[in-house]
Amino acid sequence: MEFSEEKLKKVDEIIARYPEGKQKSALLPVLHLAQEQFGWLSPETMDYVASLLKIEPIEVYEVATFYSMYNLKPVGKYMFEVCQTGPCMIKGSDDIVAYIGERLGIKPGETTSDGLFTLKTVECLGACGYAPMMQMGKHYKEHLTKEKVNAIIEECRRNAATNN
């Protein structure tokens, strides 16, 4: 369990943004880095982050469990996080969630057996004018339709096949 050299450099860079002795402030960004590298935050990963920032493991646990973006269990290679709050709901997000579930054979909160996809419902992502929408990794997929969902799933499958 260790960060890549590049990530370790990044950690130092982040810590340098804060006053001396306030390296705990780097916790959220460093947890993002950890999730980028390991896919999710296992207790071992959190302990590792605690040792990097010279804070107690509990200080990491309490933060990791507070914020919705940290995955506390393994997730699929592609995570579809569909917004379901009011403005997306009135533009049909319920249908999109149901359709993705049907296409992938999973319910919200579940991961496909091949480990490729996780479906999750989330609260407002700030794309209300471009609803319905979902987050996929670093980016937003907006103005979703069934056709668009199909194309996204196909693209993920293609990418996964070529990368392996």
């Binding site: 306030k22 705990k24 402030s25 780097a26 916790l27 959220l28 947890l31 993002h32 920032l53 804070i55 200080e59 309490e62 933060v63 507070f66 914020y67 919705s68 973006m69 940290y70 989330v122 609260e123 407002c124």
Partner: peptide, 20 residues
């Protein structure tokens, strides 16, 4: 990292300090 409450200024400050 995903928390509406961090738009409240003192929650934001806590978060910036690496806390809940």
């Amino acid at each position: 990292a995903g928390a509406y409450i961090c738009g409240e200024e003192t929650a934001l400050i806590e978060s910036l300090e690496g806390k809940r």
